[in-house]
Design a protein around this nucleic acid. Sequence first.
DNA 1: CTTACGGCCTGGGTGC
DNA 2: TGCACCCAGGCCGTAA
Length: 300
Amino acid sequence: MPELPEVETVVRGLRATLPGRRILAVRLGKTDFIDDPAALGERLPGRRIVAVERIGKFIRVELAPENGSAHPAGQPEARLHLLVHLGMTGRLAVRSPQEPVAPHTHGFFQLDDGQELRYTDIRRFGRILLVSASGLPEFQSRLGQDALFISAREFRRQLVGRRARIKALLLDQKSLRGMGNIYADESLWRARIHPERLAERLSTEEIARLHQAIRQVLRAAIKLGGSSISDFLDAEGKPGSYQMRHRVYGREGRKCFRCGGIIRRIIVAGRSSHFCPRCQRAPRSGRARTRGARPRGARK
DNA sequence: CTTACGGCCTGGGTGC
DNA sequence: TGCACCCAGGCCGTAA
C-alpha cells in the first residue's frame, strides 16, 4: 500500500528520468479512476515535464507548455499538474514500449526519448487528475501539512481539542497528509500510544513523542525504499524493505519487540489497527460510552 | 460543526 | 476446481 514513504520512493525514482522529457501522446485503458480522461489526451501531448514532486500521497508531475520557457502573456494556465494517487495497488513506472505490458495497465504516456510512462493499477483505487497552476493552491488547501515536515507546533495544533481517536486523525489527510495505516500503527507503537486514545486526552509530552515517532518512522522507511507487503515496487521495479522493520503492522499474535506483550489487532476508524496492549495502554474512561465494538446486527 | 460508521469501488488471496 | 468471504484507501451519505 503506497503511503508517504512509498510515494516518496517512486517520486525519487521518476525524478531521475522524467524531468526534461516531453509527452508525445497519451493512451488510456479503463478510465473510471480518472477525473477527466479526455483532458489528458487533449492537454498533455507536447508538454514538457519540468518536475516530479510529492504532495502527501499524490505524485505531482509538473508540465510546462510546449514552448518551454517563454510562455505567451495572456496564457492563463501555462503550467499543468498531473496528479496521481496510487491508491492501494497503483504503480507508475517508466518502461520501454517493447517491454510486456503488465496486466491492469490503464495509462500510457509516450515520451520523447522512446520510453513510456505507464500507470498500472489492479484495483483502480487510485486516481488521476489534471490541475491547472491556478487550481493547485486550492487542491493543496484541502490537505493538511506533510507528515514528514509538519512542525511540532502545527502537529499539536491539529490535535488539541479534537475528540476523535488519534488513529482516525493520523489517517485524516486534512490533519496531516501522507500518513496511511501502516505508518500510523508503527508511529503509535513507537510513541507508546494506544490507537483508540482521544486526541484531546493526549498529554503535551505524548503529542511531542508522537510527532517525533512519525518523523523517525517515515525517515527510516524512506531510507529503506518503503514497505513492500504484497506488491509495492518502486519506479524501477524494486521492492522496499521497511516491512522487515515493522514492529506491529502485520504482527498480530506475535511478541512485542519492546515488552514481549502479544500484539493485537482491532478495528479503529474502520481500519485494522495493530498495537501492543501492554506498552500502549488503552484509554480508561470514555470507552464504555463509545463502545462501538458491539457487532452491528445479529451476527448469529 | 465534529465525529462515527456503513457502504461502495475492485480483485487477489485465503480458507473451506 | 469452485466459490464465498475478507480486506485494503478514500470518499460519501447519514446519523448522532
